[in-house]
Design a protein around this nucleic acid. Structure first.
Length: 881
RNA sequence: AGGCGGGUAGCUCAGUGGGAGAGCAUCGGCCUUACAAGCCGGGGGUCACGGGUUCAAAUCCCGUUCCGCCUACCA
């Protein structure tokens, strides 16, 4: 292996180790393993997709979980794959056709679908390769696609079974129609945007006699399809109307006035025009009153033959014209500005047209009830828990799911119609003949299923269902699902419903909902806003490990992530820090040898760092297990940088550079232990750099991926070392503080006199004066009891220890007095609050005893420190005087 | 309209009953043989505002305000 470079260069390293992991089959799951199973199914990215920040975060978190679980002894399956993304993919290929001057209708259905498959085989793997760059440890040998043979079989099976159970039906309903995509959309696929709009007050003349009824509407063009006007039976204004008719303006068609409590007397004029074929509420009212349904707008958003003189006009054009005509007829009372939320297609942003149409639906209520219960009972837990409320809200108010789509790319609905008798057959395969009339002329339904129908089966369809496979047995239910909240309803809720219904068991035990990645201003990243940060560019610039670590460190629960490049830069520095720590360690292991020393590590630093690594390992395990990725990342960061590098390695240098071979070896062995542990702790976050270093280390075997994750039991813990080290750090920091404030250059050594009133403190310091000398740049040092403050010294007080730094000729008395006064002020404030508490009877009586004891001890320490500092101050003042 | 989340240092954010923290930025000192992508030290906060509960509140409750998001069939 080539000599270790001064700074970490991610590019080649990343490719090298990813290839190695794949070559060694380290991502492979084993359905026959005796280890406990841990499975995650990937939220399948669209085949049309390219990696964006959302994917990067989502998959980084999953990879952290998978790598962590492998290292803690689980048989891990991370199931990868892609989604066929019906409308999105069809749009892409259609755009391509348009560029060639043709369209799908000219090409024909079969040839078109063939083209989509071609497109998919050419570009569909793009995002998966990008996931590999991110380091994702998916079991690629099990890659699935929602349209592949096995999954298509599962889709058919589910559809047919639901139909047989009466949970799938076909019927005439108002659906959301996208006139551009030419398909029905589920309620969820409609985005509502607040729009400046107008409320038109239109006069509907009475059929008989004079006068009119004024109706308020935002959509005057739909009046052509009105089949009634409704008022509230409680509304005194209209009580006398009886069963009169009004005349539909322009068309002069008589329509009845009906009474329905749905009508809000407060809104508009209290009279509501009813258009059952073009409004979901009107449709419902039309049903109860058995009104005729008159469709006046067609699938292209154009007025049809029922629209009389307006036939052939676009719906918006018609609106303008009809308003003009109403004005001419003196039937327009007024126009008010109005704001309302209007539905748009989530794919193409075209305004939705509610349209009466024959569609396939899934009856969701019975499925939703069980899916709700599974979370209520805690069988599936949602993290963070506040999403449970959102989940319940949706499950409790669920409406039937319109699953048919009038597009070509997708699972064609397995239903056949008999041309002769009209019988509908739902079956897994085409029938030879109609079972009712025996006719052989059967035609298959042309609609396909909503993309989310197949995604809803993902946790079991990918494992081989409906066959009873070893995979299903081992990995279902899966352990965790990691996803963004934006698809909580689209996907998570539906997987719950389908999983429980068909597997008889929840699809996953935990659902972890992570944040959305926004730009540095907190705006949603979008191409149109131009504020998109491309994860691939970030990886190029900063390295994948730094990027992944940033995402993890920012992934606090319950808050969106504002991604700023500063943070990524900061964590790149951390990667480099780790790299250099390893470089240092490796250089010294070379010279010290790597066999564990004969004598156990005896220095305070060794005992301390091993105790710390034990505690940190445990804390990191806990944090990852509870999805606190930011906590885990931060623990690693603080530990590696500020404990291992800043303190331990600095203290270890003395032995490494010293002449005692035994100490040298013991220290090298501890460094090896601590470095190995650090690498393993960081591996789930930074897979590449940790593997690179791991492979360079002596005495490591195989990949770090298969190394056991550190735990508390792996290291000797020694609580005394923690308190001793606290003392030592306090003294060193104190001296450094004085040096800094007094502007003593690092090249200049100082002498110190330590006055410690406690015997244990004196012992600790006497045993560890060498590290103090090195780390605080001290030449002469002595420790004593009740040592008088030397002339020309600056003093820092820590616990009950005074450290006098001799600064003959260097000291600026005014500065020193200022410094001490500042310190006294700070302490007095703290002492004040502690004293207040202790003077409070309520506190002494009601606070837990250990808290009271803590405060009391603190007050004592503070007061001892304070008196020492004041003593110092008065000494200084004497000298000054 | 309803619901949810947020307001903590200049910036980005942790912290959810007992010591206000991190990273970046900033200021001062350092080319100390792992690392200047570094080392040492300093400064900086009325924890949005008002009330309440509690011995004790950034943390729990109520209200106000600002920001963001989600859901919704008042035309």
């Amino acid at each position: 292996m080539e000599p270790i470079a001064k700074s970490y260069e991610p590019k080649e390293v990343e490719r090298k180790w990813y290839d190695y992991w794949e070559r060694e089959h380290l991502f492979r799951a084993d359905p026959t393993s005796s280890k406990p199973a841990y499975a995650i199914v990937i939220p399948p990215p669209n085949v049309t997709g390219t990696l964006h920040m959302g994917h990067a975060l989502n998959n980084t978190l999953q990879d952290i979980l998978c790598r962590f679980k492998r290292m803690t002894g689980f048989n891990v399956l991370w199931q990868p794959g892609t989604d066929h993304a019906g409308i999105a993919t069809q749009n892409v290929v259609e755009k391509d056709l348009a560029a060639r001057g043709t369209d799908r209708h000219a090409v024909g259905r079969e040839a078109f679908i063939e083209r989509v498959w071609e497109w998919r085989s050419k570009y569909g793997g793009l995002i998966l390769n990008q996931l590999k760059r991110l380091g994702c440890s998916c079991d690629w040998s099990r890659e699935r696609f929602t349209m592949d043979e096995g999954l298509s079989r599962a889709v058919k099976e589910v559809f047919v079974r639901l139909y047989e159970e009466g949970l799938v039906y076909r019927g005439d309903y108002i659906i959301n129609w996208c006139p551009r995509c030419h398909t029905a959309l589920a309620d969820l696929e409609v985005e509502h945007h607040e729009k400046e709009s107008r409320l038109y007050h239109i006069r509907y003349p009475f059929e008989s006699g004079a006068g009119h009824l004024v109706v308020a509407t935002t959509r005057p063009e739909t009046l052509l399809g009105d089949t009634a006007v409704a008022v509230n039976p409680e509304d005194a204004r209209y009580a006398a109307l009886g069963d009169r008719n009004v005349l539909l303006p322009v068309l002069n068609k008589p329509i009845p006035i009906i009474f329905d409590t749905y009508v809000d007397t407060e809104f508009g004029t209290g009279a509501l025009k009813i258009t059952p074929a073009h409004d979901p509420n009107d449709f419902e009212i039309g049903n109860t009153h058995q009104l005729e349904r008159v469709k006046v707008i067609d699938e292209n958003g154009m007025m049809n033959e029922m629209a009389g003189p307006y036939q052939g006009m676009d719906r918006f054009e018609c609106r303008e014209k009809i308003v003009q005509d109403l004005e001419t007829l003196n039937l327009l009372e007024k126009i008010e500005p109005y704001q309302n939320a209007i539905g748009h297609c989530y794919r193409c942003k075209t305004m939705i047209e509610p349209l009466l149409s024959k569609q396939w639906f899934v009856r969701t209520a019975p499925l939703a009830q069980k899916a709700g219960e599974a979370v209520k009972s805690g069988k599936t837990r949602i993290y963070p828990a506040n999403w449970e409320g959102v989940y319940f809200e949706w499950m409790d108010n669920i409406r039937d799911w319109c699953v048919s789509r009038q597009i070509w790319w997708g699972h064609r609905i397995p239903a056949w119609y008999c041309r002769a008798c009209g019988e509908v057959h739902v079956a897994k395969q085409a029938l030879q003949a109609c079972t009712r009339c025996g006719d052989e002329d059967l035609i298959q339904e042309t609609d396909v299923l909503d993309t989310w129908f197949s995604s809803a089966l993902w946790p079991f369809s990918t494992l081989g269902w409906p066959d009873e496979t070893a995979e299903l047995k081992t990995f279902y239910p899966t352990a965790a699902l990691v996803t963004g909240f934006d698809i909580l309803f689209f996907w998570v809720a539906r997987m719950m419903m389908m999983g429980i219904h068909f597997m008889g068991e929840i699809p996953f035990r935990d659902v972890y909902i992570h944040a959305l990645v926004r730009d540095a201003e907190g705006k949603k990243m979008s191409k149109s806003k131009g504020n998109v940060i491309d994860p691939l560019e970030v990886m190029d610039q900063y390295g994948t490990d730094a990027f992944r670590f940033t995402l993890a460190a920012l992934a606090a629960q319950g808050r969106d992530i504002k991604l700023s490049e500063d943070r990524i830069l900061g964590y790149r520095h951390f990667v480099n820090k780790l790299w250099n720590a390893a470089r240092f360690a490796l250089m010294n292991m070379d010279t010290a040898g790597t066999e564990p020393a004969a004598a156990p590590p005896a220095t305070l630093a060794d005992r301390w760092i091993l105790t710390r690594v034990a505690a940190v390992s445990e804390a990191v395990r806990q944090a990852i297990d509870t999805y606190q990725f930011n906590e885990a990342a931060d623990l690693c960061y603080q530990f590696v940088w500020h404990e291992v590098c800043d303190w331990y390695l600095e203290m270890a240098k003395r032995h490494l550079y010293g002449k005692d071979p035994l100490h040298k070896q013991a220290t090298a062995a501890t460094i090896q232990t601590v470095l190995e542990a650090s690498l393993k702790l960081l591996h789930p976050f930074m897979p590449f750099v940790t593997e690179e270093i791991w492979q360079r280390m002596p005495n490591t075997e195989g990949s770090i991926m298969t190394a056991p994750f550190p735990g508390a039991a792996d290291f000797p813990s020694d609580d005394a070392a923690l308190t001793e080290m606290d003392i030592l750090m306090g003294v060193i920091t104190g001296i450094r503080n004085i040096r800094g404030e007094m502007n003593i250059p690092p090249s200049k050594n100082v002498s110190v006199v330590v006055d410690a009133s406690q015997k244990t403190h004196r012992e600790i310091l006497n045993r560890n004066m060498d590290p103090v000398r090195v780390l605080a740049k001290v030449d002469q040092a002595s420790v004593g009891e009740r040592v008088p403050k030397p002339d020309g010294s600056a003093t820092v007080v820590f616990e009950q220890i005074s450290v006098h730094v001799l600064l003959k000729g260097l000291i600026d008395f005014a500065e020193e007095k200022k410094r001490i006064k500042k310190g006294i002020q700070k302490l007095e404030k703290e002492w004040g609050t502690a004293g207040k508490k202790l003077a409070n009877h309520g506190f002494l009586q009601k606070a837990p005893p250990e808290i009271v004891r803590e405060v009391r001890e603190k007050a004592e320490t503070l007061s001892a420190r304070l008196s020492k500092m004041k003593e110092n101050l008065s000494l200084l003042e004497e000298i000054d005087a």
